[in-house]
Amino acid sequence: MFFSIIIPLYNRPQEILELLETLVIQTYTQFEVIIIEDGSKLDAREIADQFKNRLDLHYYFKENGGQGFARNYGFERAKGDYFIIFDSDCLIPEDYLEIVCNYLYEHPLDAFGGPDAAHKSFTPLQKAISYAMTSPFTTGGIRGNKKHLGQFHPRSFNMGVSRKVYETVGGFKLTRLGEDIEYSIRIHNAGFKIGLIPNAKVYHKRRTSLSQFYKQLHFFGRARINIYKHFPSELKPVHFFPAIFTVGFAILILLNLFGCKLAYLGNAILGFYFSLLFLHSFYINKSFKIAILSIAAAFIQLTAYGLGFIQDFVKRVVFKK
């Protein structure tokens, strides 16, 4: 089984250096690496050249078109039986490809995804953000765990598709705003089998500041409405939770400002929720600092996603712009 690892890249040479270092030490070696530099001003050509004798590596530079279309560019040039997509800010465990290969032989899948986790080298903030994006007490809990709601949709930071899927369904139709979910839905609708490989995890750095994290999650909220515009049935009640939380928090602020007694109940519920996040994060990370930061990260995750969701719901669904 031969894999083509496809990595779109935009102005992140340091990230690709760290990612390639983790691919060099893979225990399963039947793979190639395709880097698509998507119109970067700060390119990684010199870094890619450093790995030409260590990996079966192919580096391409194209005009900027967005990550979805950059992946398509890689698909067109890939030789593998499976195409595996990573984000450039991921680190890959040395046994990742071995795990995927063994799983696919025992449980054949046409497309697959895996979970993400925090690496021991991550900063406390990166670990807190990772917690927020994977915790069962936030919406992150449905994105890559063994138990999930509804159909499993692989995410593009850790996603694989067979050559047959690509030849039948094609590549990404969207370049951003939920392009991976839209692609997964089309794969499902074409009758292919998609599944989670529970142990095929990657270490996903995500964002290095809370402000960057806010922008990313606001974008994710908008992306959910973009998916709805293409597939209305894919908007589920769970997707409204961040928006409900955001509106509820705004109401709670007003109740406190006006001294309403109902605010006491709201404060108690919010305090209980934040305590639950703190205790769970502390149990997982064994760090008081990370547990405190996890509360902030989870709050930003919910409100940023909620505001992005509300913004585009009003604009594109209510006013149909």
Rank of each mutant, 00 (worst) to 15 (best):
L91G: 00
K320T: 13
T134C: 11
A48D: 07
I244K: 03
I300R: 05
K173S: 08
L279M: 13
I36D: 02
K127D: 02
E106I: 14
E37V: 06
K215N: 10
L149F: 12
V247S: 10
I7Y: 07
L42H: 10
P154F: 08
F278E: 02
D43R: 05
N72M: 05
A223C: 01
A297P: 01
F172A: 00
N145Q: 12
G39D: 08
A48P: 02
I225Y: 01
R207G: 04
R176V: 10
A70M: 07
G221V: 03
S184P: 02
R155T: 14
L217R: 08
I36V: 15
F241T: 11
F249K: 00
D49W: 04
F274V: 12
I5T: 01
I35W: 06
I35V: 15
S287A: 11
G140C: 08
M159P: 00
K173L: 12
Y96W: 15
K215M: 09
L210Y: 07
L279D: 09
F2W: 07
A48H: 03
F122T: 07
F86P: 01
K229R: 12
G195E: 07
T168F: 05
I194V: 15
G114N: 05
P232A: 10
P242A: 05
Q26T: 09
A118I: 04
G306P: 01
K146N: 14
